[in-house]
Design a binder for these strands. Sequence first.
DNA 1: CCCTAATTGAGATTGATTCTCAGTCTCATC
DNA 2: GATGAGACTGAGAATCAATCTCAATTAGGG
Lengths: 147, 147
Amino acid sequence: MRDAERSFREFLREKNLKRTPERMAVLRGVLSLDGHFDADQLLERVQSYNKRISRATIYRVLPLLIDSGFVVETLSARGRVSYERSHGSFRHGHMICERCQEVIEFRSERLEELVGEICTAHGFVENEHRLSVRGICKQCTDKKGQE
Amino acid sequence: MRDAERSFREFLREKNLKRTPERMAVLRGVLSLDGHFDADQLLERVQSYNKRISRATIYRVLPLLIDSGFVVETLSARGRVSYERSHGSFRHGHMICERCQEVIEFRSERLEELVGEICTAHGFVENEHRLSVRGICKQCTDKKGQE
DNA sequence: CCCTAATTGAGATTGATTCTCAGTCTCATC
DNA sequence: GATGAGACTGAGAATCAATCTCAATTAGGG
């Protein structure tokens, strides 16, 4: 948390952007939210710190947090974009059930390595990656069998 | 193409949905578009077959094509959702350059296998998967070095 | 401290997606 | 092949997230 703040300040300085209480509050909000969240949920959390922070600020700060690597965009059910904290949370993939819309997270060391190799092979400097698998989860498969 | 039509009809029958010229035209549109496209591009293509087909129909048929596995949603630059044909095109991942927004496609046999293993381990029946990597592409890295 | 440019809040605006509803069409049934 | 019930469609209105505008405020170098 302290580290995150320091690193975000650093990022702002590099970009010649000002360190404002609003920006820091949004960072704090992101760090306090686990898993996926959308702009509204973030706004609500941030407003619990400071009621005056507006929705526009959330949308203005989110790209900064994406650029600085604290947040990644992800695709959630029904084509909506949502956000996810990336710094400090383990990398993982998602399995999205097309029947019940459940999002199951998983993690694989071998996958990380393999992605690293693929990037190296393309001269691409990886910052973050996401794997999402669509299909039918165990529960739904079992349920369907019973019908 | 013939196969795709047959398979989509099959899907419609299973879901008790009607086979309409509009739905088939949207399928045809999707099959004719390579790579990524958005709703507008699809509409334009579909209207080249039949001028009367409306934007609403595009949005109504897209979810059917997603459910039936012909189309997948992907995340393109700046948090916008776009679509991509999936049936008949090789599976692949994306590397998205955060600097120039270029989307580089890649493909890895080992990745396919690994994903299969992960799904099996979770009792998840895979339908489709996407890997997207964010970072900086070779061109941009080189360019930055020169500055 | 002061000044300048960056940043902010509030609300208007935009633009993509979804909804509504009256008219049209599909297809199971005869 | 005709028919009827209900599914489907087009047009445009409605919605909703995201972006923009602008006057007022604030950060932070000098």
